[in-house]
């Protein structure tokens, strides 16, 4: 197709003027987008190629007598720890975000927000050491109490004497993902249109009812988004879990040593691994990659399902 003949044939249709600025920006934006895709594809290809030997290898040569048997307990540990972290962190984060956006005096709210954001600046190694040295020993009495009183529930079956358990790791993860969920939630809560808040108040809503009718539903997609970012971070968190947890085989008991997560497993074993063992670890990484991908798709689907009611139209 040539532009000249097109112009001749249909005089009614004008060619859009192409300005240099637009062309440059269009190119830059396109290139950035493609770079992201290329990087993502590169990572995926690397993982698949490096992990491939595991699939064809003799199961006898693998760590647990088969890749599935090796990686499943790790998946379980990773997902359990991340979900506990998310369940613990989300209500607290939404509470803090509401306090900052709707309850606190402006100055107090700003400083609380600043402190929460500072939490995000703490390196994960520091969180790991804190969890290991400070939190873990202090959790022991609680774990003993749980074992004594709720021991009939399998997850509280036996208590660790060091506190270096999956539960402790999960709680530290919860603290680590708190800032991201809080700041995303705070931003969306602050964007609730004044009109909708006033509509609720004028109907005779108390402050809490106004938040329930206008602020929370409006902010829900943002809260879900923030939670998923937090979940993504918890799934991939390496150092904190590697330091806190004294790892072992999979167990349903969350308050005793044992269990491990994919990132911690990789970090602890990567330096000495070679050959098939290396492929095995990279394969575990590939599984982690797929899990985070699935989580993100799920979050998008949840948000899109209510798109008509989002208030964006």
């Amino acid at each position: 197709m040539s532009m000249t003949s097109d112009r001749g044939a249909r005089p009614g249709r004008r060619r859009t003027v192409r300005r240099p600025g637009d062309i440059t920006f269009h190119g830059a934006a396109l290139a950035s987008g493609l770079t992201i895709l290329a990087i993502l594809a590169g990572v995926a290809i690397f993982l698949v190629v490096e992990a491939a030997p595991v699939l064809t290898a003799d199961p006898e040569e693998l760590t647990a007598g088969g890749f599935g048997r090796y990686v499943l307990p790790l998946i379980a540990g990773t997902v359990i720890a991340s979900v506990i972290a998310m369940v613990v962190a989300t209500p607290v984060a939404v509470g803090i975000a509401l306090f900052i956006s709707h309850y606190a005096h402006r100055r107090v709210g700003t400083s609380v927000g600043f402190v929460v954001d500072l939490l995000a600046a703490v390196p994960s190694v520091v969180f790991g050491m804190w969890g290991w040295q400070v939190l873990a020993p202090r959790m022991v009495p609680l774990y003993r109490w749980l074992e004594a009183n709720l021991g009939f529930i399998p997850v509280f079956g036996s208590a660790s004497s060091t506190g270096r358990t999956l539960m402790t790791a999960s709680l530290v993860l919860a603290v680590m993902i708190l800032p991201i969920i809080t700041s995303v939630s705070r931003e969306v809560f602050l964007q609730t249109p004044r009109l909708h808040e006033e509509a609720a108040l004028a109907l005779g809503a108390t402050k809490w009812e106004m938040i329930r009718t206008a602020v929370l539903p409006f902010g829900m997609p943002g809260v879900i988004g923030g939670t998923m970012l937090g979940l993504g971070r918890a799934l991939g968190e390496t150092m904190a879990v590697a330091i806190i947890l004294s790892p072992g085989v999979f167990t349903w008991v969350l308050i005793d040593s044992g269990n491990s997560t994919i990132p911690a497993e990789i970090a602890l074993n990567f330096p000495e691994a070679s050959g098939l063992r290396l492929s095995e670890l990279i394969g575990a990484g590939l599984v982690l990659f797929l899990i985070t991908l699935a989580v993100n798709l799920l979050a998008r689907w949840v948000v899109a399902r209510r798109a008509d009611f989002s208030g964006a139209n």
């Binding site: 909708h196 006033e198 206008a214 539903p217």
Partner: peptide, 11 residues
């Protein structure tokens, strides 16, 4: 109100 403000998240 001046501008119609039905709750967008509600039917």
């Amino acid at each position: 109100f001046q501008r119609p403000n039905p709750f967008p998240t509600m039917s």
